[in-house]
């Protein structure tokens, strides 16, 4: 799609048939592979396909990026997690940052279909990293774009745009934010001062995605929750983002080792 961000349609008719917005899949590329969670970006029952959009981050996503059409994944498990609660609320602001714009897309469609006015804010570091702009424009009542470096739309963060929108007096019933934890934490900070209900979709490290390992535990309102089954969506104002971020960084050294090994066997970075 853009630099190091890829879209993949996976033929998985049973998963496509059962999938709902907000849910995710676990994938494993090969026998030696790890299981990683990826949020579903779209699904097509007629075609039997599930769309995932991912950014090259760790070894697995880098390897995933090397696959070609018709290649097979070893495992594709889903749909997992509790679906988003999509109600008719009035006005919903959807905030998507970076590759988080992808899982926001089916939610925008669903909120719209439920009869809401949907204002979408999408952001990326730079114009060349912005995804799904036209798709989002087509399904949103209003689309606001921003980039960290000002190469497209507003020069700044999604939170600046959100803050301005709310200060402008727009009545908003719910904000949904999906993106890097640091962005979701910032969005939660903004909406808290306005007293607007806010939902975030968390993506911690997990193995099975079915509640079995407990590796994905997050603290919500002081209580431990398993993101894979109790979430992945939670009340943003109750999430302990510091814990989330520290747990996400736990295997950083090992991740480095893995990437290095992968790049050696791949003959260096493309």
């Amino acid at each position: 799609m853009v630099h190091q961000v890829h879209l993949m349609k996976v033929f998985a008719p049973d998963v496509a048939r059962a999938a709902k917005p907000g849910q995710f899949v676990m994938i494993r590329i090969d026998e030696q592979g790890e299981r990683i969670p990826l949020t579903i970006a779209d699904h097509d029952v007629g075609e039997g396909s599930v769309t995932i959009i991912f950014q090259e981050m760790g070894k697995t996503t880098k390897q995933l990026a090397t696959l070609n059409a018709q290649d097979e994944l070893q495992d594709f498990v889903g749909p997992l997690g509790t679906p988003s609660e999509i109600d008719k609320l009035g006005t919903v602001v959807m905030v998507g940052g970076g590759v988080g714009v992808a899982p926001a897309y089916p939610q925008v469609k669903a909120y719209k279909a439920a009869g809401n006015k949907v204002i979408t804010i999408i952001g990326a570091r730079s114009e060349n990293l912005l995804i799904l702009e036209e798709e989002m424009r087509a399904v949103s009542d209003e689309l606001l774009v921003c980039t960290d470096d000002g190469t497209k739309g507003h020069h700044g963060f999604v939170t600046d745009v959100l803050q301005k929108l709310l200060q402008g007096g727009e009545h908003v019933d719910r904000v949904v934010a999906i993106g890097p934890p640091i962005m979701m934490r910032a969005v939660a900070g903004v909406t808290k001062t306005f007293g607007i209900q806010t939902i975030v979709s968390l993506n911690p490290i997990m193995i099975d995605g079915t509640g079995m390992c407990g590796g994905c535990r997050v603290s919500v309102d002081g209580k431990t929750k398993f993101a894979c089954v109790d979430g992945p969506e939670f009340d943003a104002h109750k999430v302990d983002f510091n814990l989330l971020m520290s747990r996400l960084a736990f295997y950083r050294d090992e991740e480095g080792t893995s990437i290095k090994k992968h790049e050696c066997t791949c003959g260096g970075e493309q």
Binding site: I207, Y251, E254
Partner: peptide, 25 residues
């Protein structure tokens, strides 16, 4: 959890990291 620790080792073969991708501390 013991489940996570054992699953990483037994199912995901983390004891053979980095030949297998799943890490374990």
């Amino acid at each position: 959890s013991a489940n996570e620790f054992l699953t990483r080792v037994n199912l995901m073969k983390a004891f053979r990291f980095p030949d297998y991708d799943t890490p374990i501390r």
